[in-house]
Design a binder for these strands. Sequence first.
DNA 1: TAGAGTTTTGGAACATGTTCCGAAACTACC
DNA 2: GGTAGTTTCGGAACATGTTCCAAAACTCTA
Lengths: 259, 259
Amino acid sequence: MFRNYHAGRSPVERGGPAPPQRAGARHDGRVTRTKTPGRTGRPPVTSRAQIVAAARRLIDEGTWEGLTIRRLAAELGIGATTLYHHVRDKEELLLLLLNECTDQIALPELPEDPRERIVAAATAIRDALAEWPWAAEVLAVDGFIGRLGEPALKLVETVLDGAAAAGCSPEQSVHLFRSLWYYTVGEILVRAEPKGPGTAPADRDAFFDALDASVLPRLAAIGERWTDLAARDRFAEGLRAFVDGLLAQAEEERKGNRP
Amino acid sequence: MFRNYHAGRSPVERGGPAPPQRAGARHDGRVTRTKTPGRTGRPPVTSRAQIVAAARRLIDEGTWEGLTIRRLAAELGIGATTLYHHVRDKEELLLLLLNECTDQIALPELPEDPRERIVAAATAIRDALAEWPWAAEVLAVDGFIGRLGEPALKLVETVLDGAAAAGCSPEQSVHLFRSLWYYTVGEILVRAEPKGPGTAPADRDAFFDALDASVLPRLAAIGERWTDLAARDRFAEGLRAFVDGLLAQAEEERKGNRP
DNA sequence: TAGAGTTTTGGAACATGTTCCGAAACTACC
DNA sequence: GGTAGTTTCGGAACATGTTCCAAAACTCTA
């Protein structure tokens, strides 16, 4: 199974501590590498780096749906199934792409104020992820932060550090981070997916028009403005409010007011 | 990878308040009927209700992955492709299932305090959705609340109402709801998906063990406790903190401190 | 140089979601 | 009853992700 411990190392030729594999599962020998310290056997005609590069090429020129295993293999000039010896899954492929992107996250300037530091870090993560339409596909499948690359993990670290600087206990820091992570993932997913039916602006209007104002007065009243309001990017504002709330809660908790 | 191109139309027996639809764009299927006031033509051998029931049957006895179009069709005794005349998509099928579940949301007791009212409503939504493993599949695809059934919408209304009672403007109410919605969706998705590789507890431990404590000290330090801490359900606590923060922010804003 | 061991490779094949398109079945009206 | 219009039905077929399995290619050692 592919894990991400070895973030930062060169993409080809990396072993890494492979988690215990269930027997029977046939996976690419690249990650597992049960034996053979000195590589032997037929040399691969394709490296992981090339795969990722080709994938990006396919995505860049064309829609993101255009990235299929077979097409990617064709782009690389190899058989489709061969790809599965370099990449476990399509999901792993996406993850590689995602990591390639998060690996380029620039650490933002970090303000002194712990609160602002947290906001800056979380916003940086979100901005990096939100840039890639397929991030949602991966996040939806496994939300565990462990799959992020080291630059992203540094931002996680920053969040935790800010929490600690604001007086949070480790437990409280984790709680804070997880909460913010939920918010972030939710924002990316909900925001990045205007593709289902009923999500087009016209459909939204129709939806609100059809609401029964006597049953759902607030919703109906807001309806006409919903689309406009939703268009505004208020992620950072929500984030700030959330951080404030969480920090205040943590402080309360420390005072023993609410165990 | 759910697509959306579909030119045909899916027949339904019960009409309902149909928003004006262009050909091809359908809300959730229980609309349409472009012509034919008096139904004519061959009567369907299967109703939507039967489809949903059969789908639930398949899910209940067996894994959720066991629900495939062909199997469902077989269960119903019809051809696989026939199903596509009743349901536009597999996604729509999931949506039907989801709605059937949210339609049974019981309105919780609503406290007087606006803040607690909001918390209660949001928690009810989350609990209802979190109960269904496939909710994530749908939410990940289209987050628009318009796809929820009316009982769920009533909870949305409650949130908006609580916000208003706390003094929020409509704009602020929307902001508050959206923020909470992001948080909720994120929680459901991240929490409901321990299935990717690397998400097993053992893998998590391995992940944290591999962290470089000199680069990511906080993360490494927390590591050992992460799994335990993550296991605790603190959704409501986070929610409460969020609401507090958002309400405070709204009030600040109203005072003109931060436009 | 001849294995032996190991790795890479890819064709065939399967399950699934989905579309095409023609045939069947039914209602309404003449 | 017959015909037109409309609806439902479903087999064939396609793209995709994925696994099986056996052959090919390479390195190392004897």
